[in-house]
């Protein structure tokens, strides 16, 4: 396959960047998208140029590192996959492919296609946990039965990989899907219920501080989310927030 790549190049944080064009040839439809970029990069290195920087690690759709906005969509045109799971057979010979970093004020570009998603970690540190210390003598794991339905819903929310595609595809760069996934997971489990009020208030406060936009319920995040995190979670977070905001005594 022969392709024309249009890639965002930016030397460093805060520097100006622009789209550059790279023709590339000899791409096999069996390659993954990132392997295609490997080919490009090795070519660039051999020519003495700087390769294109992009985040990736597991290359099997679970670490959430890869994060490319491909041809106008987060993680590209395929559904339910991350960038690393996208394969070149989804493109045609002769295609022009736009590759851009996630765009959000809260995700500043570090270099080329690499962005800083530290905001997610800070939101987690604000409340995305159960306050339980390590000890050899917590309750026995089976001492609190949990309805399978709740456990399954909590699991579904917990499969979020923190990739940020929701923020990238939201017209408002809103992080509600990500935050609500964690809020939901813990709100659905008895172990997390105890701190539910505090958690939702603190996490939302941090989310707002980070400069993410708000939710207009367009649903773009749910469509582009590689893990199919549901909008139900956002509603649940809103519910939790209303309860906490109106009922909490502090």
């Amino acid at each position: 396959m022969k392709l024309t790549l249009k890639i965002w190049r930016q030397a460093g944080p805060g520097k100006a960047g622009k789209m550059e064009t790279y023709p590339i040839d000899g791409i096999s439809p069996d390659m993954s998208f990132l392997e295609m970029l490997d080919v490009l990069n090795n070519k660039l290195v051999t020519e003495g140029q700087e390769p294109v920087a992009f985040d990736h690690d597991c290359r099997e759709g679970i670490c959430g590192a890869c994060s490319l906005y491909i041809n106008g969509e987060a993680h590209g045109p395929d559904r339910g996959v991350t960038t690393c799971q996208l394969h070149m057979r989804k493109f045609k010979d002769g295609d022009t492919i736009y590759i851009e970093p996630w765009r959000a004020k809260a995700f500043p570009v570090i270099k080329d296609l690499v962005v800083d998603r530290g905001a997610f970690d800070r939101i987690m540190a604000a409340g995305g946990f159960v306050s339980v210390n390590t000890s050899g003598n917590t309750l026995d794991a089976n001492s609190i039965p949990i309805p399978k339905d709740d456990a399954d819903k909590a699991f579904d929310a917990a499969t979020c990989i923190g990739c940020g595609a929701c923020v990238a595809s939201c017209k408002n760069s809103s992080a509600m899907l990500f935050v609500s996934a964690k809020v939901s997971q813990l709100a659905l489990l008895p172990q997390g219920r105890v701190e539910a009020q505090r958690r939702v208030l603190n996490m939302v406060e941090q989310m707002d501080k980070e400069g993410f936009g708000n939710c207009t319920n367009t649903g773009a995040c749910e469509v582009e989310c590689p893990k199919g995190i549901s909008l139900e979670n956002i509603a649940r977070m809103n519910r939790e927030y209303i309860k906490a905001g109106l009922l909490s005594e502090s």
Binding site: K6, K105, K171, A220
Partner: peptide, 16 residues
């Protein structure tokens, strides 16, 4: 304000 820089290529109609 949450998105100071827009995408060069964006296809929102595919998801909303």
């Amino acid at each position: 304000q949450a998105r100071p820089q827009n995408y060069a290529m964006n296809k929102p109609a595919t998801n909303s």
